Simulated scan of single mutants.
Amino acid sequence: MKHLNFILTGLFFLCGLCCRAQVLPLEENVVLNTKEGQIKGKLLLPGGVKTCPVVLIIAGSGPTDMDGNSAIGNLRNNSLKFLAEGLAANGIASLRFDKRGIGTSTSAGKEEAKLRFEDYVNDVTGWIDYL
């Protein structure tokens, strides 16, 4: 019995030496305040680093949220979330956000007739200033 305990303890320590500890990325909820309301986003930082490059991920056309999912047809593929996780795994931070009026940022939406391209440009400029 002593030998079995000794062998199991040795195997446990050997596995600890062979396996590297993985530092998980840190995800933080962030908010951009605008005149119309709050635009919400997520900042994903690679774990274990003090400085790193950062990417601003801007959702594509249509009602696409910060994770890359669309309200049209209830399409959920999490493409932008997976992109952010892949960047973090390679030491690159990212910030992704819901477009105004979409997802968790519905309070910042406007009537479609009053929505202008400049509104989106101002949102991106605000996030750049945040970073």
Rank of each mutant, 00 (worst) to 15 (best):
M1H: 11
K2V: 05
H3T: 12
L4Q: 09
N5T: 05
L8A: 12
T9L: 12
G10H: 10
F13C: 10
L14T: 05
C15L: 15
G16M: 13
L17Q: 15
C18I: 12
C19S: 13
C19M: 13
C19Y: 15
R20T: 13
L24E: 12
L24V: 12
P25W: 06
L26H: 13
E28I: 08
E28T: 11
E28Q: 14
N29C: 08
L32K: 03
L32D: 10
N33P: 04
N33H: 11
Q38S: 10
Q38D: 13
Q38C: 07
I39Q: 03
G41H: 05
K42H: 04
L44H: 00
L44K: 08
L45M: 11
V49T: 10
V49W: 05
K50R: 09
K50D: 08
T51V: 02
V54P: 00
V55S: 00
I57K: 00
I58W: 02
S61K: 02
G62V: 04
M66I: 03
D67F: 03
D67C: 02
G68P: 01
N69E: 06
N69L: 07
N69D: 01
N69Y: 05
S70W: 00
S70E: 05
G73T: 03
L75V: 04
S79R: 10
L80Y: 10
F82D: 10
F82A: 09
A84T: 00
A84G: 02
E85I: 04
G86I: 00
L87P: 01
L87C: 02
A88F: 01
A89H: 06
N90H: 15
I92H: 02
R96G: 10
F97S: 04
F97L: 06
F97R: 06
D98S: 08
R100Q: 12
R100C: 08
G101Q: 08
G103L: 01
T106A: 14
T106I: 13
S107T: 08
S107E: 15
S107G: 10
A108I: 05
A108R: 03
E112I: 15
A113T: 13
L115T: 14
F117I: 14
E118W: 11
D119K: 07
Y120T: 11
Y120L: 15
Y120W: 13
N122V: 13
N122W: 11
V124A: 14
V124E: 06
V124I: 15
V124P: 01
T125G: 09
G126M: 06
G126R: 02
D129Q: 11
Y130T: 00
L131N: 07
L131Y: 12
L131C: 12
